[in-house]
Design a protein around this nucleic acid. Structure first.
Lengths: 220, 220
DNA sequence: AATCTTTTTGAGTATTTACTTTAAGCGCGT
DNA sequence: ACGCGCTTAAAGTAAATACTCAAAAAGATT
């Protein structure tokens, strides 16, 4: 691996573990056994590292979305989609734990964040429309924006919420599935009678996955 | 006003405006025209100031809740309650913009935060139960915890969400009413037919308030 | 007025932190 | 072997920052 990539990955790791604020460029260099000068050969400054991390996040997001199997079932689509979003937020959780502060410090980062968010809004909205057209959800036109917004707040801040709840927040697969269960809870009141059975089946499936993940976390 | 209180209030103001991270103890002292030594006579360190701010927040919260008019109408109750919560979060928004980071840095603060959150969960749950018993909301027992959680995530992170959305986030009354509208959106699918009319009336009322606030913000 | 306590000053310090600079090492084509 | 460009090292530095301390000022008490 190139030094530049090693710096990026060590930074993600250290930031997630100890918080971006508590990790200096010297820490990162020491962790990798390289000199600070070397780090600054590859990056102009710390902000530059964070921007590079965000670029990696954005690349991940796009490539994962493209890999998203083009299923016939719109319910599966949105669940797969939410799964990806939760996993990416988990991988870059230092960023989301600190979202307003990191964005306000770095206007160009905020711009790129906004662009990607706009894509996400479009995607979520169109998925909800698909669900409505497939008569899986019964959403009125004027409810669509609010529901999109609530879905986004829940996904974006789910891990932050967990971190405020527990003393030693363990961000594992079980935590992500718990977040997915909140997505089910949000959609549940809108599910049509005809789709209820499938919906509850999918919900039960993810509930099982959550419990399996919780158990394997305990034994591990 | 005593110096200690002046320090607390200047800190809240500066933290909200420029972020806790960008404000040093020397800044606070300079802003007040006092010496750093004086500041450190009243507070052991910066964390101590943040803890004192949180104490003020907690006091505000408790006194506001006690002042909450003991209305017969459970719908009014939860709306008044949410209004208070949004206003307090706005007043201490630097804290919520940074919640996971600030809490993880300060275990004793996290403990106090958790205690207060436990009270809030109890209160929100009991309000939802009242709404169910008054046949305003049609919530099943097993849906209650999820809905409580979603209400809490939405209120806690509403301002953080807004800050990530706009380039120059203006946190005014209109922004808070928009948050309240999301609470309506969350509850709406559960509203019973018999209560629908009252619910939509209240919703329309707050929508008007939001628009008035938005207009007066433009003219101001 | 004298004494004691509380508050405030302001110059200072130890440490941290982001970042620089100069020079050396390394791979590689010729 | 030599030169060239890319990469790395090591030793820094300037600025910021949280915090201290001895002494002065202000206020209270008798």
């Amino acid at each position: 691996m190139k030094t530049r990539d090693k710096i990026i990955h060590a930074s993600i790791e250290l930031f997630n573990e100890q918080g971006e604020r508590n990790i200096t460029t010297n820490h990162i260099a020491a962790h990798l056994g390289i000199s600070p000068g070397n780090l600054y050969y590859h990056f102009r400054n710390k902000e530059d590292i964070i921007s590079a991390i965000y670029a990696e996040y954005a690349d991940d997001l796009i490539s994962q979305f493209q890999r998203l199997s083009d299923t016939e079932n719109p319910l599966d689509s949105i669940l797969q989609y939410m799964d990806i979003v939760f996993q990416l937020i988990s991988k870059f959780r230092f960023f989301y734990s600190n979202l307003p502060v990191l964005l306000s410090k770095n206007p160009s980062l905020k711009k790129r964040y906004s662009e990607i968010q706009r894509e996400i809004i479009k995607k979520v909205s169109s998925m909800l429309v698909s669900l409505k057209e497939a008569e899986i959800l019964n959403i009125r036109e004027e409810e669509l924006d609010d529901l999109t917004c609530l879905l986004r707040i829940t996904t974006t801040f789910w891990l932050s919420y967990l971190q405020t709840q527990h003393d030693e927040p363990k961000i594992d697969d079980a935590a992500l599935y718990q977040g997915l269960m909140k997505i089910f809870a949000l959609l549940s009141p809108y599910v049509t009678d005809s789709a209820r059975e499938d919906f509850e089946k999918a919900r039960g499936h993810y509930r099982e996955l959550e419990q399996q993940a919780a158990e394997s976390a305990v034994t591990a």
